[in-house]
Design a protein around this nucleic acid. Structure first.
Length: 218
DNA sequence: CCCTGATTCGC
DNA sequence: GCGAATCAGG
């Protein structure tokens, strides 16, 4: 992402407004916190309460060219930004009383596998058919105070589980909010639901019929 | 751990 | 010029 005049103006305004580099980076989009800080300094915007002391005078030696040439020795420098999961999130299931009880102990073959984050994929035998979507409300109803402290849209960060609970627009809609399985958008439990093991093709059962013969059109 | 800003230096 | 990597304090 290039630093257009417009983005630079936004950066300046936000920086001077006291927003943190992270907030600015998120707001601008397409740049990291480091990029924002680096740019701010290049623009001469510096100086803000920094947690790091400005050690002066003595012994402020940088370890100099330390390791900069050398660290390439590290075979796998881990990228700071985790790649987005290839698989898009599976559609969340509604809170369904019937689904609360686990199915009887599996009598059929079990297909399980371990996901890349170490979670156990849900066996197809355990998979619940998606219940039909309830009627949707287009405008959120008034927020139920009971859910005010639940994880809402604005509470989502890279490290909380983004698995939706309930339905958007309803008063009890919120997100799981547990600590994520590192590198994934969901907690371990919900990774197991989002990334599911596949049956061998030949054994695959046809998908349940879609309600009223087709996807909804909005 | 999480956050923060500062700095360096390969590109 | 850019920003990832790193540092260092809270």
């Amino acid at each position: 992402m290039a630093w257009t005049d417009e983005r630079i103006d936004d950066l300046k305004a936000m920086w001077e407004k006291g927003m943190t580099a992270s907030q600015i980076a998120e707001s601008l989009g397409g740049v990291s916190r480091n990029a924002v800080i680096g740019k701010a300094h290049r623009l001469g915007l510096k100086s803000r309460p920094s947690p790091v002391k400005a050690k002066d005078g003595k012994a402020k030696k940088k370890p100099a060219a330390k390791a900069k040439a050398a660290p390439k020795a590290k075979a796998a420098p881990k990228p700071r930004v985790a790649p987005a999961p290839a698989a898009p999130p599976a559609p969340p299931k509604a809170a369904d009383p019937a689904a609360a009880k686990q199915p009887a102990p599996p009598s059929g073959p079990q297909y399980r596998s371990i996901g890349p984050g170490g979670f156990t994929r849900q066996s197809p035998a355990d998979q619940q058919p998606l219940p039909p979507a309830p009627p949707r409300r287009l405008v959120p109803e008034k927020l139920d105070p009971e859910y005010e402290d639940k994880t809402g849209l604005l509470d989502l960060t890279e490290r909380v589980c983004k698995w939706p609970m309930g339905h958007p627009g309803e008063s009890d809609f919120h997100f799981c909010g547990e600590a994520v399985n590192p590198g994934f958008p969901y907690c371990v439990e919900h990774c197991g639901r989002a990334y599911q093991a596949q049956l061998p093709r030949k054994d695959r059962r046809p998908p349940p019929p879609l309600p009223f013969g087709g996807p909804r059109v909005r």
